[in-house]
Simulated scan of single mutants.
Amino acid sequence: MAGIDTAVLADWVSRFGAAVAEKRDWLTELDSAIGDADHGANMDRGMSAVGEKLAAGTPATVDELLKTVGMTLVSSVGGASGPLYGTFFLRMGMAAGAVSELDGPALAAALRAGLDGIVARGKAEAGDKTMFDAMAPAVDAFDAALAADSSVADAARAAAEAAAAGRDATLPLVARKGRASYLGERSAGHLDPGAASTAILFDTLADALAGSAG
């Protein structure tokens, strides 16, 4: 496939926003069990604000596009989701730089930087029952697929599958971070809403890259 330009990345963001809107009630239902019952509403509000911002025109460089997404999420999403997702996109943009498109390794480096930003802000580790449990396996799977000479689109699909598996693996976990940790053992038996939205993030990335490769 050709390079991953700002149009493809904007399509990813648009697909993510649409999927969050579609899954808003489900995400809120998940959060009602172990959180503040606002994850779906907060993410939908934030991604709607991002959509309005990008409707005025797609920035010319990857870093400006991702910075716009990140700053909008930080300023418009309540709770922990805004700072965490905002940091993810901001760090992606910083790693990508002022370029018009990315190749596979550059996208991998940007995703890794986004993950590192979430770790720096949230201090989460594997098994804490957070978005990290979906995102870290996804980024690792993306890297592994590229190393095995998979296409970028196939690597993104592998990442999406790993994120979904990571999301599902949060079901039996006892939360050790965030509002859910206050519930102790009662947090077990519920999917983590942040991991659920992260799985959507990577699923829509795979869809966007598949669409651009077609």
Rank of each mutant, 00 (worst) to 15 (best):
G3M: 14
I4V: 12
D5P: 09
T6V: 15
A7G: 10
A7H: 13
V8H: 07
V8K: 07
L9I: 11
D11H: 13
W12G: 09
F16V: 07
F16R: 03
F16I: 03
V20W: 05
V20M: 09
E22V: 12
R24Y: 05
R24K: 15
D25T: 08
T28P: 04
T28W: 02
L30C: 08
D31W: 05
S32N: 13
I34F: 07
G35E: 02
G40S: 05
G40H: 08
G40E: 03
A41Y: 08
N42R: 02
N42I: 07
M47P: 08
S48H: 11
A49M: 12
A49S: 14
A49H: 04
V50Y: 01
G51E: 05
K53S: 12
L54F: 08
L54A: 07
L54Q: 11
A55M: 05
G57Y: 10
T58F: 13
T58W: 10
P59I: 03
A60K: 15
A60P: 01
E64S: 13
K67C: 03
M71C: 05
M71R: 10
T72K: 03
L73F: 03
V74G: 01
G79W: 07
A80R: 05
P83L: 06
Y85R: 03
Y85Q: 07
G86P: 08
G86W: 06
G86H: 08
F88S: 03
M92N: 04
M92Y: 04
A95S: 14
A96C: 09
G97A: 08
A98H: 12
V99H: 04
S100M: 14
L102A: 06
L102G: 07
D103T: 13
D103A: 11
G104W: 00
P105K: 01
L107W: 05
A108N: 09
A109W: 06
R112C: 00
R112A: 10
A113I: 00
A113D: 00
A113F: 00
D116V: 03
D116L: 11
I118W: 00
R121V: 11
R121L: 15
K123C: 04
K123T: 00
K123R: 15
G127W: 02
D128W: 12
K129E: 05
D133Y: 09
A134W: 07
M135I: 15
A136V: 12
P137N: 09
P137I: 09
A138H: 10
A138W: 08
V139Y: 10
F142V: 07
A144E: 14
A147I: 00
A148W: 08
S150N: 13
S150K: 14
V152P: 10
D154E: 15
A155T: 06
A155C: 12
A156T: 11
A156C: 13
A162E: 07
A162D: 11
A162N: 10
A163C: 13
A163Q: 12
D168I: 01
T170N: 04
T170L: 06
L171T: 05
L171R: 15
P172C: 02
P172L: 06
L173H: 04
L173K: 05
V174N: 00
R179W: 06
S181P: 10
L183D: 02
L183N: 03
G184S: 07
R186L: 01
R186F: 02
H190Q: 01
H190K: 03
P193L: 02
S197P: 10
S197R: 07
T198D: 08
I200R: 01
A206C: 12
A206L: 12
A208K: 08
L209C: 11
L209P: 11
G211K: 14
G211H: 15
G214T: 14
